[in-house]
């Protein structure tokens, strides 16, 4: 049996990725069922959200328990600007930037301290926003009638697809850059990284800002997608913890892990919700515990072990 060279396997990978993107682009043209496209929208939303959480949580090793704050800030900003007459893209960009500002507000003080302060700080921030937004904006935010009349699903789907690709691409570019190398060095050994000239604070803040930016963009896409929702919804803790679980299940600190985790999670949840209603929460809770205990690398970790074992047998 002839073995594939690294260049060959790289070429196969690229062809596979392009094929996958082509299928995703063609999807709304081929499938006319709205419920399937809606499911695909949720898959792409969570691919972006999990991948953006992973930029900070996976690559830099900082546990963010308040990603919903960034998702929500992006959603709220984009929704308000867009409904007030701004064009979509400046509104989205503003949403991402507001999320970054919020992230730096918590990151600059919290990263000066080591330990659990950042995790607690982000959790507190997102819960404060959840409650405050619930109090200040208690009314449902609906699209005006003239927008509803021309509402189309396909452009929403393409926006989510673009943001997912953008987020994944940014993560890939990051880990192959000097900046990404520094970020991962800080994750591995903070003192050792500092003693090589890597500023731990700066690299954590860069990872945080990128993570928040893409979380905010994803929120903005949600605001463009949804016909009517309570603004508080986008700040709910489930956005944080669903994304976090997807990353753990798929494989933290990898590019592919969050994607697999999100696809697996959303589709399984859809199947379970149809048959078990709220019981799916128990299933995911149990699954999460099992993965953390027995598969610390998630699905990607298992895949790594299998391919290593196969290589040894050859």
């Amino acid at each position: 049996m002839s073995r594939t060279s690294p260049e060959q396997s790289r070429r196969i990978q690229i062809i596979f990725i392009l094929l996958l993107i082509a299928i995703l682009v063609a999807l709304p043209q081929v499938i006319k069922s709205d419920s399937t496209i809606n499911l695909a929208v949720y898959v792409l939303l969570f691919v972006s959200l999990a991948s953006s959480w992973n930029i900070l949580g996976g690559f830099s090793g900082q546990t963010n328990l308040g990603h919903a704050a960034f998702f929500g800030a992006g959603a709220l900003t984009t929704r308000m600007l867009w409904l007030s007459g701004w064009n979509l893209f400046p509104s989205l960009l503003a949403g991402g930037l507001v999320a970054v500002a919020l992230a730096l507000l918590i990151g600059v003080p919290a990263f000066r301290l080591r330990g659990v302060y950042f995790a607690i700080g982000t959790l507190a921030l997102s819960q404060i926003l959840y409650i405050t937004v619930g109090n200040m904006l208690p009314m449902i935010s609906s699209l005006p009638a003239q927008d509803l009349a021309v509402y189309q699903l396909a452009p929403r789907y393409y926006l989510f697809l673009a943001i997912a690709l953008f987020t994944i691409g940014a993560g890939y570019a990051l880990i192959n850059s000097r900046l990404g190398l520094g970020i991962m060095a800080v994750r591995e050994e903070e003192d050792a990284a500092e003693s090589l000239g890597v500023s731990a604070l700066k690299h954590k803040l860069v990872a945080l800002a990128l993570s928040a930016f893409f979380g905010g963009l994803t929120g903005g896409a949600f605001a463009f997608y949804h016909v009517g929702y309570y603004p508080q919804l986008t700040f709910g803790p489930e956005w944080t913890f669903d994304a976090l679980m997807m990353v753990y299940i798929g494989g933290m600190g990898t590019i592919v892990g969050p994607i697999i985790g999100a696809v697996f999670f959303v589709i399984l949840r859809e199947l379970l919700a149809l048959n078990l209603a709220e019981m799916h929460l128990i299933v995911f809770g149990t699954l999460f515990i099992l993965v953390v205990l027995f598969l610390p690398g998630g699905f990607m970790g298992v895949w790594g072990k299998i391919s290593k074992a196969l290589a040894r047998q050859q």
């Binding site: 500092e194 003693s195 090589l196 000239g197 890597v198 500023s199 731990a200």
Partner: peptide, 8 residues
């Protein structure tokens, strides 16, 4: 100076 600066 911070540690990373001292390396420089």
């Amino acid at each position: 100076e911070d540690a990373h600066k001292i390396v420089e």
